[in-house]
């Protein structure tokens, strides 16, 4: 009996080590390739260099700035539209709100390519809109909105917002005062978790963006695809390094926020 138990454990450890290697090794290779003078010769022979990073900055800095701008704009829209809506969805469970909740979650179930195609068919002929980064923003808002709404709703449910609000109402607070004084301050962990998620996903969004972008509105992942196809491996790696540097702090913050507020920030299964 003990033997079968330890066999299972050993097998698990072996698989875990292999899976970790599978997940980490390519990332490490990528980072090292980005600072290696010549990847073909290896980092020991050819030495460490920041030439490629400089080259990426020269070629692609505008994509990085555009990604940041789109991410922040996406955040603003999801905050302004998503947080109040999450409150209404939680507060008034009914057929109408249930339908709205289903609809805003649909962009998670439908491949980004399909949504992008739909947006192009509907608005592609409006030249100024099509050519602006607002077009990309639209796709990002659709894609990230459910994460903000759900993150806020999870916290609303955990804090029993309905009763808290009744408490405030019993003390004379109007709907607006209740929302401002009781709901918003207590839902902050959900807003924070949702915001980190939205920014992270927006920075990394490719499926929609590839269809929606124009040569003048390239975001970081679009530039990455471009570099993977046409640049030498060292430049592609250095560019990927920029992406890691932007996204990993956000991921670390997300983990810290989740640990700080317990399970309130939503189930792990609903990520991405």
């Amino acid at each position: 009996m003990q033997r079968s138990g330890s066999f299972i454990l050993v097998a698990q450890i072996v698989v875990t080590v292999l899976v970790c290697a599978f997940l980490f090794v390519p990332a490490v290779l990528s980072v090292s390739a980005g600072v290696t003078a010549n990847y073909f010769q290896g980092v020991w022979k050819s030495g460490v260099t920041f030439v490629w990073i400089g080259e990426v900055w020269r070629l692609y800095a505008d994509t990085i700035f555009l990604s940041l701008e789109v991410a922040l704009a996406t955040l603003v829209v999801t905050l302004v539209a998503g947080v109040p809506a999450a409150y209404v969805l939680h507060r008034h469970p009914g057929r109408l709100t249930r339908a709205l909740e289903e609809i805003i979650t649909l962009p998670l179930a439908i491949p980004g390519l399909a949504i992008a195609l739909a947006l192009i068919l509907a608005y592609g002929t409006y030249g100024d809109f099509r050519k602006s980064s607002l077009f990309i923003l639209t796709g990002h808002v659709l894609y990230t909105m459910p994460f903000m709404v759900r993150s806020v709703m999870a916290v609303l449910a955990a804090m029993d917002a309905v009763t808290l609000e009744e408490g405030a109402a019993s003390l004379g607070a109007s709907p607006w005062q209740r929302f401002r004084d009781v709901v918003l301050p207590n839902v902050r962990p959900g807003i924070l978790a949702g915001a980190l998620m939205v920014v992270t996903l927006s920075i990394g969004e490719f499926n929609l963006t590839w269809m929606l972008h124009t040569p003048l509105t390239k975001t970081l992942p679009v530039g990455l695809a471009d570099s993977y196809a046409s640049m030498r491996l060292e430049i592609a790696s250095a560019y990927t390094l920029f992406f890691f540097v932007m996204v990993i702090p956000l991921l670390v913050l997300m983990q810290a926020a989740a640990m700080f507020s317990g399970a309130a920030s939503g189930s792990a299964g609903s990520r991405r």
């Binding site: 804090m159 029993d160 009763t163 009744e166 408490g167 019993s170 003390l171 004084d181 301050p185 207590n186």
Partner: peptide, 14 residues
Amino acid sequence: HVGMVFQSYALFPN
């Protein structure tokens, strides 16, 4: 203008 005590107290955590 009533006062109410709730079963879960509904105290504002903020």
